[in-house]
Design a binder for these strands. Structure first.
Ligand SMILES: [Mn+2]
Ligand SMILES: [Mn+2]
Ligand SMILES: [Mn+2]
Ligand SMILES: [Mn+2]
Lengths: 221, 221
DNA sequence: CATTAATATTAGTTTCAACTAAATATATTA
DNA sequence: TAATATATTTAGTTGAAACTAATATTAATG
């Protein structure tokens, strides 16, 4: 009857399955292996155990999917992770590129009490510093306005950065120095096939698509 | 040349060896086993590994002792633990009886950055909420005035609680409700062979020795 | 459609940190 | 001192979670 507490590893599997499923539907062993930095054979092994305890469903050679219970746990871990990222940034002076690694370890270790305490302290935030939605205490994903990649806007248009979808430390570090961070208002000053020119705070910068593609915005209405 | 990062388990062994060594000198397998909630055979096994990497010295059948390097690591973990306890109490509204368990897990997982951030935030404190000394950033134990068990004072004498040496949740919870906490001024209102009567804040309570023995005070000069 | 390439699974190993049961060493005391 | 009790160590097991090497399945392509 009582859930026997998952291992750190199992929690990471569930979390990554959730994120991949969100992007591509059914999740292949290969992708999962890449994300978890582990060999595909190891994934097959762990997936078997997770099937045993009914946290995922697996059709051999087709892929895995979370069960409802599995998804609950994934969301719980994701909530820990994202609350922690925001907390580290807001209360302990972590920079954008430092928060992910620390949250990756802490997420498995903090109690519900800790989770509640920092959520309370930050007044129950809905988005982390990357703009990723933070599942609520009852594990619902908050509504998010629909976002477009900045590279899809036409020259001249105004918008607000709402999400930056990478954990690459170098990119995050660079973008934060340029003030290209979540909730900043920007204008697309120009664009060509190789990238976009963005205006922020009277400055402007040309970003190649390899970087610009990570930036998602809400357009001014 | 490079230290290969210890396991959580190894860190706990070093920390407990440190604390026991502080009390009794050389540390027996039995005591260590009791503290770590593990069988003596397991201790022998782990001690062997720690000897291999020269973090402890072991004379079979006589006991273990930390090497200088081992002590450094123990102090590092202890610093994490005690900084965390204070942080949880001061910034996240944890009660006295809740802090230990959470710190016990977090201590192995926070980075040096996290350690530095909370130390800074709390202005480099020297003692945790139990009155235990917090090793400094360079791992020195701060000077502490010498303390006496409150049960050793004579009736009528005034003093200040400076340390409460137990992690028992029920006792801590009770003492904190009675305001018998670190840095509180008290008077010994009376005593007999079974315990002491303490006066705090116009209230007074009789504590049996089984509890009073955990309370250490600094006497008014 | 027959090969080749890409993915996934199986079988067997390794490392870690615990465990039990049995043997050995030290300490206590009759 | 001999007998008993306590403490410690040894030997062998277990369960997680990774690994490698080999095999099997599915997908892509000439
Ligand atoms: Mn993250
Ligand atoms: Mn993680
Ligand atoms: Mn503690
Ligand atoms: Mn611990």
């Amino acid at each position: 009857m009582n859930k026997p507490r998952l291992s750190e590893s199992q929690e990471d599997y569930l979390k990554e399955i959730y994120k991949l499923e969100e992007l591509n539907g059914r999740v292949g062993m290969q992708d999962l292996a890449k994300r978890l930095d582990v060999r595909p054979a190891s994934v097959t092994g762990m997936v078997k155990k997770l099937v045993q305890v009914q946290l995922v469903e697996h059709e051999p050679y087709k892929g895995v999917r979370l069960t409802d219970v599995g998804e609950k746990i994934a969301l719980e871990v994701l909530r820990h992770h994202r609350l922690l990222e925001l907390y580290l940034a807001n209360h302990l002076n972590y920079t954008w590129d430092e928060i992910h690694e620390e949250a990756e370890r802490l997420e498995h270790v903090i109690s519900e009490k800790f989770e509640a305490a920092i959520a309370e302290l930050m007044d129950h935030p809905t988005h982390d510093p990357h703009g990723d939605p933070i599942p609520s205490a009852d594990l619902k994903i908050p509504e998010t306005p629909d976002l477009k990649p900045v590279s899809s806007l036409k020259a001249g248009s105004f918008s607000t950065i709402r999400r930056v979808m990478t954990q690459d430390k170098d990119i995050l570090n660079m973008l934060s120095r340029l003030n290209l961070i979540v909730n900043r208002d920007i204008q697309v000053a120009g664009k060509d096939s190789s990238g976009v020119r963005l205006k922020v705070d009277e400055q402007q910068y040309f970003l190649p698509l390899s970087i610009a593609n990570f930036i998602f915005v809400e357009c001014d209405s």
